[in-house]
Write a protein that binds this DNA or RNA. Sequence first.
DNA 1: GCCAACGTTGGC
DNA 2: GCCAACGTTGGC
Length: 154
Amino acid sequence: MSHWLIKSEPDVFSIGDLARVGREPWTGVRNYQARNFMWRDMRPGDLALFYHSNAKPPGIAGIARVAGAPYPDPTQFDPASEYHDPKATPENPRWWLVDFEHVATFGRILTLDELKADAILSAMQVCQRGTRLSITPVAPTHFKRVCSLAGASV
DNA sequence: GCCAACGTTGGC
DNA sequence: GCCAACGTTGGC
């Protein structure tokens, strides 16, 4: 099993929103590296840290799980969507996604400051400056340590 | 295929 | 709101 970190702006879609809906298609990813993670590398059952970006404070808010196999992001075909991609066709899709389902909401946000201050977790990609990638792989040791610091048992 | 300009992300 | 980082675009 692989582990991941997925970013979301809580004003747009938060861990609480995921808990409410249960399962959500991860639409709107328009970066090839992030797409490749979903399209090629993720497997159903993989666990992901749910990170709140552009938040006060930014940090990890909970855990999600890859809920199924990848499929084309429907928003790329929708001219009314802000994620519409005129170069994509149903016969030749460019953007793929997976659904995520809610696993756990942490009792508190594990803040970016705490991650950076931690001798082990400071190596995480999300801690490096200039990392804008919305989906990143996470080492199993990092995943376990985050869960233990957040008091979550997974 | 180089690279300057531009747009976006996201912490601060 | 500022701006560093960096991916993408498009002229050549």
